[in-house]
Amino acid sequence: MARSVSTSRRVTFTVIAWVIALILFFPILWTIITSFKSEGDAIAFPPVFLNFHWTLDSYREVQERSDYLLHVWNSAAISFGSTLIALLISIPAAWAMAFNPGKRTKDILMWMLSTKMMPAVAVLVPFYLAFKNLGLLDTKLGLIIILTMMNLPIIVWMLYSYFKEIPGEILEAARMDGATLGKEIVYVLAPMAVPGIASTVLLNIILSWNEAFWTLNLSASQAAPLSTFIASYSSPEGLFWAKLSAASTLAIAPILVMGWFSQKQLVRGLTFGAVK
């Protein structure tokens, strides 16, 4: 892996990378900064960068209007709940496909993954009606069910690609030594698969956290997660930038923090295990 790159070039590249990173990060940064301004400062001109009166007013107003903690709790419950259920369903499935592939395994996987490409709006009505009849509209349980189903294909696919890298011989050996199927999965397969499972979980939590289509349409107030919360600020508050920024910052903060502390898993998850 020794491709030599001269120092001067390396410095140039690093500088360029910083510039690009800053440009890319600027919208996020600006949103965060604006959230600490008063409404007046937010539309002040020329734009004030750091030398304004820092205030938490916008946050206070947002909290007064909608219960932020309720939405955070909803988001957390929905994304963790759906991820957990999806894992319970997909670990056995991925195990079966990776270690006992049949003739049609690849076809089934492909078909599963292709469903993920389907526009969700095409199946919204049947679900809406079913949820209405079952009393699942605007409940956390309902959203957990729908997000589990929506993310299942990706989870199975990712777990499958991680499991496939585990040599079957190790499991074989465990079996030779008399491990039962359950023991084989719990003591041999699971420990080796932990990094892959972690990436899968992380990506899925982020996807569920950001999911806006289903949550917007199937929740109103009680079960509304952060995506619904932020959407409720979009149109009527169109000109209250500070408040809007505060709401946005509150909505993205958990993701930014989580993303920073789990960069490696995140990148691996996003690239379906392609980056080691």
Binding site: I20, A21, L24, F25, P27, I28, T31, I206, W209, N210, E211, A212, S227, I230, A231, S234, S248, A251, I252, I255, L256, G259, L266, V267, L270
Partner: peptide
């Protein structure tokens, strides 16, 4: 570079 992708489309 990946941060924007981790945000929801709404934001």
């Amino acid at each position: 570079f990946l941060y924007p992708f981790a945000l929801s489309f709404i934001v």
